[in-house]
Design a protein around this nucleic acid. Structure first.
Lengths: 241, 241
DNA sequence: CGGGACTTTGATCCTTATCAACTTATGTGG
DNA sequence: CCACATAAGTTGATAAGGATCAAAGTCCCG
């Protein structure tokens, strides 16, 4: 069988925007063909959910485009966002029984989905893929632990400043790529105020007040609800500590 | 060469307390022999540090006995404990340049240490090991994300109740193993009050007050500073939500 | 334009941090 | 073995940061 096509149609992987950044980066053409055969692309509307906390873990996916949120709730209904996934990030829980958190698209998104059983089998037979997945999972664990410092020890100002800086960095590769200063000074927030609050462990009112304060102090500008311009990156970094 | 011995002495792995639970569980005798050859055992005193945040990542290790803490600090010196490692847990950052957090023994401990370069090479040549490490890392990521909910959305009472329940569960395998109710009702805390505060993102005073309150309410008993007896597990679970 | 969702702003309250004093353990040398 | 020193933990008083409750303002999309 030609590695470039599958029963499900053409091999999307060759033209994939994240071909060189996702966990499939190290696979050769034949392997990519096999992976392509068990996966399929799926478009998601902003707000659409693809994984539900507590469900059997049936799907895993790569994010190709857009921003996804991983979240859970306390029993009294307060949400906590556990992480955000950007293009080339991996989603879902391979080698596990249940999905440990819900996953929802924040923006219109594009993902590459696999049945977990298919993916697990493929991964076990392809150590190169498992290795990439391991490196990615280790990086994600580091990032998550850094976020714990934010949640456990930072005040509202430090939290929002850190969030804005990280968002700018993470959005960078997708937009332009000035190498000198990678992070865009101007960007569009993939999250509404309430969602930012859920990421930072704050209330929407506190987030709003901090935005207003930073704007008054000239650190940022807010041309519209979803737009942010960083006017004084150094000062913002100082606030984030 | 006999797989049971190395230049550094006998193969400790065969009698290792965590032989069947750590990432080396799936290796056969020959492989274990090779791993044994590049590792060495090390005893740590309570309070001894083996990894420093920001250093080059030169070491990785398995915890054999004792409890280790992973921690980082804000620039103004407040500590945040990022996680605790119990026997059979893996420590350190393979495939990475720098150590992302400090690691210190909370109790007298026993670890099995590898040069990261040796370990990385061995792992890449042994997919079975990499797979175990991947599963462990995924589990650790899940656990860490659950901890984010605690840090971001729980109040002091919920935090301490959750901490006591998790500590009881994690200490279980080391102590007795009643299968009916695995978690011991009575156990010794591996952490001092200040360290508990650093785990939970609270101050020592708040932790102390919560301990006193729970004791007054008959949920727990505190025979000594480091000892805890759970008197009403159900009530404790209700407090943790 | 008009309605609904999202956001900002204001007033007040509550939890937890902070500061300070006191108590209880742990350990050391006379 | 006890007295004293030091570290660890508890308790109390006060303050501050953020939550909560309430209302007004703004944007967006039909």
């Amino acid at each position: 069988m030609d590695a470039n096509t599958t029963e499900r149609g053409v091999n999307f992987c060759h033209s994939c925007a994240i071909r060189n950044r996702a966990i499939c980066a190290d696979l050769d053409n034949e392997e990519i063909g096999m992976l392509n055969a068990i996966g399929r692309r799926r478009r998601l509307k902003a707000g659409e959910q693809i994984l539900w906390e507590g469900d059997d873990a049936v799907l895993v996916a790569n994010v190709i485009e857009g921003v996804m949120k991983l979240s859970t709730q306390t029993s009294d209904g307060k949400e906590q966002i556990l992480g955000l996934s950007y293009p080339s990030d991996f989603l879902g829980r391979p080698f596990g029984q249940t999905t440990p958190y819900g996953v929802e698209a924040l923006t219109d998104a594009h993902v590459c989905v696999f049945q977990r059983s298919d993916f697990d089998r493929f991964a076990r037979e392809h150590p190169k893929l498992e290795h990439k997945l391991l490196e990615r999972t280790l990086t994600e664990l580091d990032r998550t632990r850094r976020w714990m410092l934010l949640l456990g020890r930072m005040n509202a100002e430090q939290k929002l400043a850190s969030f804005l800086l990280e968002t700018a960095d993470r959005l960078a590769p997708a937009s332009c790529s000035f190498i000198a200063d990678e992070a865009p000074v101007h960007f569009e927030l993939p999250l509404a105020r309430q969602q930012i609050a859920d990421v930072l462990g704050l209330t929407i009112e506190t987030v709003s007040r901090q935005f207003t304060k930073m704007k008054k102090e000239g650190l940022i500008d807010l041309p519209s609800r979803r737009e942010v311009t960083i006017l004084d990156r150094q000062a913002l970094e100082d606030r984030a500590e």
